[in-house]
Amino acid sequence: MPVTPYALRVRDVRKAYGSRQVLRGVSLDLRPGTLAGMVGENGAGKTTLLRILCGQTAAGSGEVDIRGSLGYCPQETVLNDFLTVDQHVRYFRAAYGLRSTGRAEELIEELHFAEYRHTRVDDLSGGTRQKLNLTLALMHDPSVLLLDEPYQGFDWETYLRFWSLAARLRDSGRCVLVVSHLAWDAERLDVLHRLREGVAEPWEPGGRTAAPADGDGR
């Protein structure tokens, strides 16, 4: 029997903060070329799970296996206020060891913030900071993408562009996991998981229509 290829495999990941058990055995398999979503109410452990997947937080137990390079877009914009957009791109080009900033240039054009290339981050709006935050996670064209509420602060047009970009990444074989506390985007996803009581389960919101997770509204 052929082995199913996977890009991201999570097995029985558990995590507790003191006596509070946040993750009680999360298991998940995502194949290359998948656009997946993970929803859950505030405090369900979504960000903790992503931080474990990218290595920033240690799991209490369990296994994580990621095949290929990884891109992580944190929920809070993690940028340097004193540097410009271009300087961030150059800094991360050196970090990723890239030959050129070609992919970053494409993303900057696609997300429509080229006019701010020479603007320092502390002079950028929240939405533009988030565009840069996302660009830094994608500019090395990773195989697996972990995006934590990646469209916070985006206007409607940018929000749509984000989903179009995510779909193209999926079509080119990338595995994209988008975490949100809302299930508004269920129709755009290939697979949706819901993190509830520390466990991730496949979930299909009622009739595949837009619905908030556990009563969380926008």
Partner: peptide, 12 residues
């Protein structure tokens, strides 16, 4: 915190 040897670094 990722296990060594199983997960590659997120570099290009």
């Amino acid at each position: 915190h990722r296990p060594r040897g199983r997960t590659p670094r997120p570099a290009g």
